[in-house]
Structures are given as structure tokens and as C-alpha cells.
Design a protein around this nucleic acid. Structure first.
Length: 814
RNA sequence: GCCGAAGUGGCGGAAUUGGUAGACGCGGUGGAUUCAAAAUCCAUUGAGCUCAACACUCGUGAGGGUUCGAGUCCCUCCUUCGGUACCA
């Protein structure tokens, strides 16, 4: 018997599996398909840490499990290689991103194989390769044709550090999502995708998805659909000021208006006397950074324009102010103010001493308000509508607005269109040609891909123009329409465009004449199980859903949602309870763990650490513990003769019980992504089997072999190397990973002796060890006869005895 | 502020969803092996009752409640973490 030499055996099997291409996936209509996908990684220069393993090991285990259950499993991966992070890294290293990407992907791939993943490398894709981004551009043109891609001038988020614009989703806390530099607004002409057109469907279709509820909530909040009404307030200048409100029931309480400083009508509404003050305010608010301006605890500021408007419902003359707490980009950029029923308006009114009129009262009586009352209630001070319920009144007054041409019902969204232009080099060029005569002309599909030219000076200039603008041979083209001189669009696409369709590409990664093979997509998609970090809740996961719907609408696929089931693995923190990062020097690499304990131990520990969705803290000792367990298992499996003798019935029953309990437990745990408890089940099962290990008669028996073989098969998805080696050592030639998953028999798993706790007044007093299946009468008798129970009921009166499901005896005494 | 998740031994975490709290692992303690150490193996390990056994008491963030019975359900509060930020 040899020792558990994980180094040698892992290398041996790695090679063997590669040689036979064990994990090559092909379509097979006789088998049910299962598509299990990890968020494809951005190949960073730092390589994989054990934190990444927390994503890849569970999905790999799950995929292996499903293969053994007889499913045809697609479990591919690839590289999200385009985008700012890759480019910034290349700039930092002073190496072209093509080169850094090539190196980094090689390293990732090496590490992924090291930990025993079963990705089908025949299906590897790379979003920065022309074969791939040709189709990203093709989808851009599809969106363009459908009127969903457009150019617009406007104030955009800009990062001075990355020297490019950012989508709204990519501004976190007023800062650039990637580099953390403060974002600011800049006026630029940019490309957008009209994602707002899909806002309703993006919200409504969430209902049917098997996704974590928090992610769905985050998406709903991000899109933030508000039902309400628009209303027109007539200014005394004769201008119409349109507002949006979710509380039309409070219209009678609108005592002033506030417009965003950027609102178009501000100059016209400003009276000569107020002109200076207004202009100063506009200048000042432009200077304040967005973060400060959006901060909720900032005191309200504003200036009176000098003009008045008429409240459409009661004809009251109300003053028009401007204030920076009103955003130009939401709704109409103007609001009606109801200080009695809106906290922000209340604060503003208090500060500038504006009238506060209560119109919704909790009890129908007027009150002295010390705060805004924002709940529903009974209408007061609302003319003929007094006494109505405010919720019902919403509809009544909205209908009235409509009937009188002063408004209508309306819906607003917080989500904005997706800004996809990037003034950066490392992305898919936007396939558009600008011609002076013909305007914006899409590149004909036959001319795709628009290849990203190899240029040495790819750093952003910071002038708001893409580095591609400097590549004159790239920029200057003939117009596809008129043949005259024209210029290429030089912006590249946001990296999130590339990742909005990659899951489709895996079905047929090598087709050259289309983005995907419809038949194969039909077989594999949608993705059955999609696993990745929760940080993509509002970026990637909204964008990919949007593209899928556009592709569906174009009739190219037959599903509306790309990811049926979504799971978020919990974060893995370093032993210092902080995120692993190079700068903190707390990164643990899979390489070092594989070297010390083997890939199987690393995999086992990753799964054992804690619940899949929970946050866990790295502790190398735990990894060593799993390694020790595997060493013991090795001893137990490899030292036996097997098949020599028979076995008595009692021992066989006991061994079968261990075997079938394990099958049932592991099967249900793996199905439910409860890997941590399945690893404990293996350890527990080992401990139970080990009690027989000294008994040669047992370990030489056929039953022992069967129990051990079942154990190995069950463990194979978690620890593929050691199980394969032991499987071979007990005499098999076909890979363990090709074996069928065993079926558990609950009747064999059942205990013949059960433990029945006995409680007296809710306190545990005894545990009866008795034959299973005794009638309740007998249980009651035995429980009452118990010595320690007697001690507690002797001088008392037994009121009742409860025996729920024959599992426990509860005696109530007085 | 609002939305969401979670609080269980020295630590990571189990607990059939209302039924023996602490599975499994880590760490600790004692022992075996060893010249010694590492490794390995065996035993023990929630707290208290000044040693031990038996028994008993307490114990799942805090306080109430429902129940024969609560880590699990209900109410109030506290703490931590994630998301979000004047969206009218």
C-alpha cells in the first residue's frame, strides 16, 4: 500500500483526462441538456485567488454531478477580455493589451485546470478576438436597425482618471466603478442603447425567474418604476410647466414650484429683479460636485425666480423657485411642492418660509405639522373633495386633469438609457461610418468585423476623443452608401456589451457565418444555472437580459430570459476578515494550496467552509483538515483485499445503512447547492465506516467493496483526482467520472433502533433507545416507566402525554 | 434615511423547517508513538455547580409573547454586513 501522493496522482490524471478529452461536450438529443455557467472572468494580471475558486469549484462539482446523473452538461468558460480594467492594466505594465490578455488568459487557464475544473476548452471564447467581436458589432447593428442605438448630446458622467465616459450604472457613490476616481459631468455626444424602452419588461419578467430575491429587488429598485400623473401648471408668463408626481392626491396642497437650475424655462421666468441672484445660484450649483449635490443631508438651497404659476386644481397663485434638489434628468425637471406631505418640500418650505397646507389628514381633522405626513388618509382643504380617501382620490383627480386638458396619468423610471461609448482603445469598435453627405451610416454586415487596429500608442489622450481617432488609416474610409470620403466612428463599446450575449456563443463557439447556430442554441439555452458574484446585480445582469429580449424580438431565439436560475456565491474573505487584494498582501492562490494539500483538498475545503451563498473567511487549517481526511480515506480504501469472505447479515445491514444514508444525503445536498453539509456527510460516514476497519473479515468482503465504491462515486464530483485513483486501485479501468450516480433506498437507510427523547414540561429527561415502529401506547408506557422521568412526575399529576409523529414523548404535569 | 441579509461554543458552521441545540471540521487539553520534534493515532472538549460520577441549573444578540415544546413563529429593540442615495 502506497501513501496518498497527491502530487503524482493529480498530475497523472490531469494528463490522462486531457489525452482522452474527457470533458468534450457534444449535442446529443437523446439526453436532457443542462447548461451550467459561471460568469466568465476578466483575466486579471493577478491570476486566480482561492476566492475565485468559490465560484468555480461549486459549479464544477454541480456539473460533474449532473453528468453522472445522466444529463448532457454544457459547462464552458471564456474570457471577458475587452474593457477598461484590461486596458488600464496594460497601461500600468507598459505592455500592449493584446499581449497582457494573452498571458493572463494562459495563466487563468492553467490555474483552472490545476483545480480540476471540467470546462470544455474546445468551446473557449475570448471577447477581444475578432471572431467574437465581429458578432458583438453585428448585434450593435441589430440594435441600430431596430432604433435602439442612437447618438445624443448631453451631460454625461466622466472619469478623469480613466479618461472616458461612464454609464449611470458604472457610477457608484459618485465615483468610477473601476478606479474609484470621482466622476463628474461633462457635455459630450455619445452612443446609447435604448434600454428604457424595455424597462417594463425588465421589471415584469423578473417575477418568473428563479433568482435570489435580493437581486430581483435591486433590479426593480434600479429601474424604479413610479406610477403617477403629469400635470401642467400655467406660469404667468404664459408658459406651461409640466411636472410629474406620484401623489396627485396632494395637488391641492401644492403651494410653490421648484425647477432644476438647468430647466429650459428658468431664464424666461426670471424677473429682472431676481436675475442676478438666479444667475449666481446657477453658477454656484454647477460648481458643486454631483456627490455633494445629491447628498441627502445637505441643507436645501434655492432662489425665487420672481414669477408665479397657477395651481391647476384650485387656481391658487404659487411662486416658482429654482433649487438643486430638483434633478434635471428625472421626470420633467420641475416639481410641484407639497410641503405638508413631502419631507424634502417640507424642509425647503420651512427654510424659505413658504406656506404649508395640509390636504391629507390621518383622521380628517387639521393638524399643526412638525413634519411632513407622507401616508395616505382623508382629504381636507381640497374643496369639493374633502372627506374622500386619498388613495381613491388619486384616480379621481387624475381623471379630472385629463378631462380638463391639464394632465394625465404617467409613468416614470429612474433607469436611464445605457451609455455605451467609450473613448478608449481596448474595446470593440462601434461599426458606424460618419459621412458628410449621408450622415450616420452603419457598416454593412458583410464588412464585419471592423477590426481594432493594432496601434502602439493606445493610451487615452484625455481630450474626450478615443485613441482610435489618431489612427488615420483606420479613421479614413469611403462611405458605404455614396462612396465619398468619410470617417469611422472612433469610440469603442462598453465592455458590458461583449458580455451581454456570450452565453449564446458557447452553444456554437466556432460558427463563422452567424453569431450562433439556432439549433444548438435551442438545445442548450436558456442557461439553466448561472453562478457569479452579487456585484453584477444591476450591470451585467440587466444588460444581458435587455439584449436577450432584443434578440428575442428580432425572432432569433425563442426565450425572453437568458438565465433561468441564478445563484450568488458568498464572498470569501482573507483570514484578516478583509477582501483579498494584492495591495493588502493577503491573497492566497490556489497554486500554493494545491502544492501543499492537493487540488482535491482545496476543492473539498472550498465547499466545506460554509453555506454556498454565505460569506466565509479563509483559514488554511481548514484546508489542512480536509487534506487529513483524504489521507485517512486513502488508508481505508487502498489497504484491503476485497471480495475474499462473506459477511454476517447484521453487519451487512449496518453497512448498507451507512451506504444508503450517504447516497440520499449527498444527492439532495448537491441538488440544492448545499455542498458544506455534503462534505460533513462524507466525514461522518467515514467515521462510521472506520469502526469496522480493524475487522479484516469486514474489509475483505464484497459488501465492503460495494460500500466503498459507492462512497467513491459520490465523492467524485467534489474530489475528482483521489477518487479516480482509488477507483482504479480497486480494479476499474473506466473513469469514475463516467459512472452512473447511485440510487438511494430509504428503506435500507432506516435505523432499526431509534432514539426517542422524553420531555417533562418541555424539559428533556430521558432518551429511550427502542426498536423502531413501536405503537404510541407502548411508547407512552415506556416513557412513563423511565426512572429519570419518574423522578420528575412522581408527586405530580400527569395532565397529558403528547407523541407527535411517534418521534418524541412530551409529558405535561402539574 | 430607505431596501435587503444575518446574529448559535475559543473559531468556521450543523439542526429533518416547531421536536434531543452544538453534527462535521478547526483550535485546545490529556495520552500513545519518538532520543526529540513534526506527522500520525486514541481520549476529551458549551458554561456553571470550588475534584470526580450521577443528578441538576443555565445557554442560540436583548426583552416580551404564542405553544406541551421556540435557534426556528409573532411583537419591540440592539448590533454587524451588503445595496441605494433628495427619483418628486
Amino acid at each position: 500500500m502506497s501513501k496518498y501522493d497527491f502530487v503524482t496522482l493529480e498530475a497523472k490524471w490531469q494528463k490522462k483526462w486531457d489525452d482522452v478529452d474527457l470533458y468534450k461536450t457534444t449535442e446529443d438529443s437523446s439526453k436532457e441538456s443542462m447548461y451550467c455557467l459561471d460568469f466568465f472572468p476578466y483575466p486579471s494580471g493577478a491570476g486566480l485567488s482561492v476566492g475565485h475558486c468559490r465560484n468555480y469549484v461549486p459549479t464544477d462539482t454541480y456539473s460533474r454531478f449532473f453528468r453522472m446523473k445522466g444529463f448532457n452538461v454544457l459547462h464552458p468558460t471564456g474570457w471577458d477580455a475587452f474593457g477598461l480594467p484590461a486596458e488600464n492594466y496594460a497601461i500600468k505594465m507598459g505592455v500592449h493589451p493584446e499581449e497582457t490578455t494573452r498571458k493572463n488568459t494562459e495563466n487563468y487557464k492553467r490555474q483552472m485546470r490545476l483545480i480540476g475544473t471540467t470546462y470544455d476548452w474546445n468551446r473557449e471564447v475570448n471577447s477581444s478576438s475578432p471572431e467574437y467581436y465581429k458578432w458583438t458589432q453585428w448585434f450593435f447593428l441589430l440594435l441600430f436597425e431596430k432604433g435602439l442605438a442612437y447618438q445624443d448630446y448631453g451631460s454625461q458622467w466622466w472619469c478623469d482618471d480613466c479618461k472616458t465616459v461612464l454609464a449611470n450604472e458604472q457610477v457608484e457613490d459618485g465615483k468610477c466603478w473601476r478606479c474609484g476616481h470621482e466622476a463628474r459631468k461633462k457635455d459630450l455626444k455619445q452612443w446609447f442603447f435604448k434600454i428604457t424602452e424595455y424597462a417594463d419588461r425588465l421589471i415584469d419578467d423578473l417575477d418568473d425567474l428563479d433568482w435570489p430575491e435580493p437581486i430581483k429587488i435591486m433590479q426593480r429598485n434600479w429601474i424604479n418604476r413610479s406610477h403617477g400623473a403629469k400635470a401642467v401648471f400655467k406660469a404667468e408668463t404664459g408658459d406651461d410647466i409640466e411636472i410629474f408626481t406620484t401623489r396627485p392626491d396632494t395637488l391641492f396642497g401644492a403651494t410653490y414650484m421648484v425647477l432644476a437650475p438647468e430647466h429650459k424655462l428658468v431664464p424666461k421666468l426670471t424677473t429682472p429683479g431676481q436675475k442676478e441672484e438666479i444667475e449666481t445660484y446657477i453658477k454656484e450649483s454647477a460648481k458643486i460636485s454631483e456627490i455633494d449635490r445629491l447628498s441627502t443631508d445637505k441643507e436645501k438651497t434655492g432662489v425665487f425666480t420672481g414669477s408665479y404659476a397657477t395651481n391647476p386644481v384650485n387656481g391658487e397663485r404659487i411662486p416658482i423657485w429654482i433649487g438643486d434638489y430638483v434633478l434635471a434628468s428625472y421626470g420633467t425637471g420641475a416639481i410641484m411642492c407639497v410641503p405638508a406631505h413631502d419631507t424634502r418640500d417640507f424642509a425647503f418650505a420651512k427654510k424659505f418660509d413658504l406656506p404649508i397646507v395640509e390636504v391629507v389628514s390621518p383622521d380628517g381633522n387639521p393638524h399643526e405639522l412638525s413634519d411632513a405626513y407622507t401616508e395616505s388618509g382623508i382629504m381636507i382643504n381640497s374643496g369639493e373633495y374633502d372627506g374622500k380617501n386619498s388613495e381613491e382620490f388619486k384616480k379621481i383627480i387624475t381623471d379630472w386633469l385629463k378631462a380638463n386638458g391639464k394632465g394625465d396619468q404617467d409613468i416614470n423610471y429612474k433607469m436611464r438609457d445605457w451609455l455605451i461609448s467609450r473613448q478608449r482603445y481596448w474595446g470593440a469598435p462601434i461599426p458606424i461610418i460618419h459621412c458628410e453627405k449621408c450622415g450616420t451610416v452603419p457598416v454593412p454586415k458583410k464588412d464585419l468585423p471592423v477590426k481594432l487596429p493594432h496601434i502602439e500608442n493606445f493610451e487615452p489622450a484625455g481630450d474626450g476623443k478615443s485613441p482610435l481617432a489618431r489612427a488615420t488609416e483606420f479613421v479614413n474610409v469611403k462611405c458605404p452608401k455614396c462612396g465619398g470620403d468619410a470617417k469611422r466612428e472612433t469610440d469603442t463599446m462598453d465592455g458590458f456589451a461583449c458580455s451581454s450575449w456570450y452565453f449564446l456563443r458557447f452553444a456554437s463557439p466556432h460558427v463563422h457565418d452567424k453569431a450562433f447556430d439556432s439549433e444548438k442554441v435551442k438545445y442548450w439555452l436558456p442557461v439553466d444555472v448561472y453562478v457569479g458574484g452579487a456585484e453584477h446585480a444591476v450591470m451585467h445582469l440587466i444588460y444581458a437580459r435587455f439584449w436577450t429580449k432584443v434578440i428575442f424580438d428580432a425572432g432569433l431565439i425563442d426565450f425572453k430570459e437568458p438565465f433561468t436560475k441564478l445563484l450568488n456565491q458568498g464572498m470569501l474573505l482573507a483570514s484578516d476578515h478583509q477582501k483579498m487584494s494584492k495591495s493588502k498582501g493577503n491573497v492566497v492562490t490556489p497554486d500554493s494550496m494545491v502544492e501543499k494539500y492537493g487540488a482535491d483538498a482545496l476543492r473539498g475545503y472550498i465547499l466545506f467552509m460554509g453555506p454556498f451563498e454565505g460569506e466565509v473567511i479563509w483559514d488554511e487549517k481548514g484546508c489542512a483538515g480536509v487534506h487529513r481526511f483524504l489521507g485517512r480515506l486513502w488508508e481505508m480504501v487502498t489497504g484491503n483485499e476485497y471480495d475474499v469472505g462473506g459477511l454476517d447479515e447484521k453487519t451487512e445491514t449496518e453497512l448498507r445503512r451507512i451506504q444508503h444514508k450517504l447516497i440520499l444525503k449527498v444527492t439532495s445536498d448537491l441538488e440544492n447547492f448545499r455542498f458544506n453539509t455534503s462534505v460533513s456527510a462524507f466525514m461522518e460516514s467515514y467515521n462510521n465506516l472506520f469502526k469496522y476497519f480493524e475487522n479484516k473479515e469486514v474489509t475483505n468482503s464484497k459488501v465492503w467493496r460495494e460500500v466503498i465504491e459507492t462512497y467513491l462515486i459520490l465523492l467524485a464530483p467534489i474530489c475528482p483526482y483521489i477518487t479516480e485513483e482509488m477507483w482504479e486501485s480497486v480494479g476499474h479501468t473506466e473513469s469514475i467520472h463516467k459512472q452512473m450516480w447511485p440510487k438511494g433506498d430509504s428503506s435500507l437507510a432506516k435505523d432499526d433502533v431509534v432514539k426517542i427523547p422524553v420531555q417533562v414540561n418541555g424539559k428533556l429527561r430521558d432518551v429511550l433507545e427502542i426498536e423502531a415502529g413501536l405503537p404510541e401506547e407502548k411508547l407512552k408506557e415506556l416513557a412513563l416507566a423511565s426512572e429519570s422521568v419518574q423522578r420528575h412526575i412522581a408527586d405530580k399529576q400527569v395532565l397529558k402525554v403528547i407523541i407527535p409523529k411517534g418521534k418524541l414523548v412530551s409529558i405535561v404535569v402539574k
